[in-house]
Measured scan of single mutants.
Amino acid sequence: LQAFIKTLTGKTFTVEMEPSDTIENLKAKIQDKEGIPPDQQRLIFAGKQLEDGRTLSDYNIQKESTLHLVL
């Protein structure tokens, strides 16, 4: 599935991932794409901060969901 990552500066980019991917995997993909170390990334979806060990499906993240990236 493709999801949108929106930063506080208003920049939006897309990442490809599977519902079974962990938040940790997602942070690694963001690092590959944007060069931001995972330990500096905080991802917010539906008002909740996402925990590394959980999966996208745990948070009911669907295709074309928008996640907010806070540094």
Results as ranks from 00 to 15, higher is better:
T55R: 12
T9N: 13
A46G: 11
D39Y: 12
D52E: 08
K6R: 11
T22I: 04
G10L: 03
S57H: 09
L8V: 14
E24Y: 13
K63V: 09
K29P: 01
T12E: 09
L26S: 00
Q41C: 05
D52W: 03
Y59H: 03
D52M: 05
V15I: 14
M17G: 03
E34Q: 11
I36C: 04
T14W: 12
E24C: 07
G47R: 03
V15T: 02
I61C: 03
G53L: 08
G10S: 03
P38Y: 12
Q31M: 13
I5S: 01
A28M: 13
R42V: 15
T66P: 07
E51L: 09
K6H: 14
M17P: 01
K48A: 10
A46F: 10
A3V: 15
L67W: 03
Q2A: 08
F13H: 02
Q2L: 15
Q62K: 13
P37Y: 04
V15F: 08
D21R: 02
S57T: 08
I44F: 15
H68M: 13
L26N: 00
L69S: 00
L8P: 14
L71N: 07
D52K: 04
T7S: 07
A3P: 08
K27D: 00
I36R: 02
D21S: 08
N60M: 11
I36T: 07
I36F: 13
Q41Y: 12
Q2P: 07
N60G: 14
T66N: 05
G35D: 04
K11E: 09
L43M: 02
K6A: 07
L8G: 12
K33H: 12
P38L: 13
Q2N: 11
D39H: 13
G47E: 05
I30L: 04
R54Y: 12
P38S: 13
K11M: 08
G53F: 11
Q40Y: 10
E64K: 11
T22H: 03
E18N: 13
D52V: 05
S57D: 09
S20I: 05
P38Q: 13
N25K: 15
F4Y: 12
L69C: 01
T7F: 11
I44A: 04
S20Q: 10
G53P: 06
D58W: 11
I61W: 08
S20H: 13
E51D: 08
